[in-house]
Nucleic acid binder design. Structure first.
Length: 471
RNA sequence: GGCGGGGUAGCCAAGUGGUAAGGUCGCGGUCUGCAAAACCGCUAUUCGCGGGUUCGAUUCCCGCCCCCGCCUCCA
């Protein structure tokens, strides 16, 4: 079965084929963070989705080249720096650093490139593109000195969002200093400098100013990936105006179809409402880490619901993620033990060898729920086989190899380390107490281990200790 | 008002024109000194509501209701 993705542009699931004739190279552009404050986990839902996409393409043998931009100049970054009383570059640097910390915590594969909007190379590219748009009548400089895109001159404008331009309705969020535009929908390509910008600004043929938000992405995407790209991702809130504007600007300059596949992920909700900075209902990664949740637990919680369905963030959901991961951890331990043992089997497991259901589910527009369903079914069946002494070392190894492939996409395996000395000592003392049948002492030691975040289990092969998830 | 996404068990969630995967929680059992883990069993006559098509619809069609988002800051 070919890979299939839901393309926002056509509103249909389409078979995925990259432009590359050999079918192996895939270019992806993903809208990255605006570094004006720490990103919240709603932002990271999008980045986790993009990570899942990239990793699955790679599992399927594609060579992915991914670019994620960093927006380090706009109204919010400038305001944030002003409020902190520090230069813009210093302000954005700290949030960039936090962002890279956070994606590492979530095990998100870094993009191949993280271009920043303020890089002179891209500023030059933006200016070049704006000049072309003006020369073609697609843009104009207004009375306020800013340059705007003339949406009425671009026939396809509105096609991605399926908006009828005459129906555009102001939500009252329009900045009132933009009254010089010809059409309410015209958007800024170049924002003329004003006092609030302080020393932030670049010289241009239209005077000192700074780039509009949308043109950044057009410039960086075409500079690094060319005029046409395979996949462009973001959150659904980017469809309009951001991605609509990107199409208009880019195609207005190149005359080529900018993006083949537009993929957008739904929002993370809190109490049924979109998680956002403005509503104040957000959590950052450090907020959750402080509560004892680990990066992989958060990753799992953000990933386990299909990317196009809204996902409600709850503590129940976090705990479910923790428990589910614990189940996987314990299963892997059992598989490894089985792989190391020579056993006399009493039968043959029904599911002695893995199938390709997992990756085929992901082929189908990243159907993560079906993929995880197969994983957990497999866990139950192989556990049952081990219980019944029906799974041999070869079968266990086959499942471990299968897991490696699955985990190359999921990236949720626990990073197990040896227990610290005090834990090892308590465990040894407990083993001795049990040999002496001193159960009150044994139970006391078990409680102590629990308090340290370790769990003692008595099996027929003696005591086993495992780290309790999240502790 | 326009355009999207969603509505399946306590919670999360997959899915198909033929009578509902999986996770989590809860209950009972096997195992255990007791636990834990694992396994076994139980937990939706039912898929937002009302019509229609069909031998048969959760799945297709029509109408409606509810939730969320976008409509120029937003992942």
């Amino acid at each position: 079965m070919p890979l299939r993705f839901f393309n926002t542009y056509s509103r249909q699931i389409e078979n995925f084929e990259p432009r590359d004739a050999t079918g192996r190279k895939v270019d992806i552009y993903t809208c990255g963070p605006t570094v004006y404050s720490r990103a919240h986990i709603g932002n990271f839902r999008a980045y986790v989705f993009e990570d899942l996409l990239q990793r699955h393409l790679e599992l399927r043998g594609y060579k992915v080249h991914r670019v994620m931009n960093i927006t380090d100049v706009d109204d919010k970054t400038i305001r944030s720096a002003r409020e902190s009383g520090i230069p813009l570059t210093e302000s954005t640097a700290q949030f960039k650093e936090a962002f890279f910390e956070d994606i590492e915590t979530l095990r998100i594969k870094p993009a191949d490139e993280f271009p920043a909007a303020t890089n002179q190379r891209y500023i030059d590219k933006m200016i070049e593109m704006i000049a072309i748009l003006i020369s073609r009548g697609l843009a104009y400089q207004a009375e306020d000195k800013s340059v705007y895109f003339r949406i009425n001159k671009f026939p396809g404008y509105g096609k991605l969002a399926h908006f009828d331009l005459t129906q555009l309705q102001s939500t009252g969020r329009v900045k009132h200093d933009e009254y010089d535009k010809e059409h309410i929908g015209d958007f800024a390509l170049w924002k003329a400098w004003d006092e609030e910008d302080g020393d932030v600004g670049w010289e241009s043929p239209w005077g000192r100013g700074r780039p509009g938000w949308h043109i950044e992405c057009s410039a960086m995407a075409t500079a690094l990936l060319g005029d046409e790209i395979d996949i462009h991702c973001g959150g659904v809130d980017n469809i309009f105006p951001h991605h609509e504007a990107e199409i208009a600007q880019t195609e207005g300059v190149t005359g080529k179809k900018f993006v083949r596949f537009w993929l957008h992920c739904a929002h993370l909700l809190v109490d049924g409402q979109k998680m956002s900075k403005s509503l104040g209902n957000f959590y950052t990664l450090p907020n959750l880490l402080e509560k004892g949740y680990t990066g992989r637990e958060i990753r799992y919680a953000l990933m386990r619901v299909h990317y196009r369905a809204p996902l409600n963030f709850t503590w129940d959901g976090m705990n479910e993620a923790r428990e589910s991961l614990g189940r996987i951890d314990d299963w892997l331990v059992r598989l490894r033990e089985t792989a190391d043992e020579e056993k006399k089997l009493v039968g043959t497991a029904q599911r002695a060898t893995p199938t390709s259901e997992f990756e085929e589910a992901l082929d189908d527009d990243l159907n993560i729920s079906a993929a995880l369903g197969f994983l957990f079914e497999s866990i139950r069946e192989t556990n049952r086989a081990i219980d019944r002494n029906e799974l041999d070392a070869a079968a266990a190894n086959a499942w471990l190899e299968w897991w490696q492939r699955a985990n190359s996409v999921l990236t949720i395996e626990e990073e197990a380390g040896p227990p610290p000395p005090e834990v090892a000592e308590l465990a040894e003392a407990r083993t001795q107490a049990r040999l002496a049948k001193d159960f009150p002492k044994s139970d006391e030691l078990r409680d102590k281990l629990n308090a340290l975040g370790w769990e003692a289990r008595d099996t027929k092969d003696g005591q086993k200790i495992t780290r309790r998830a999240g502790a």
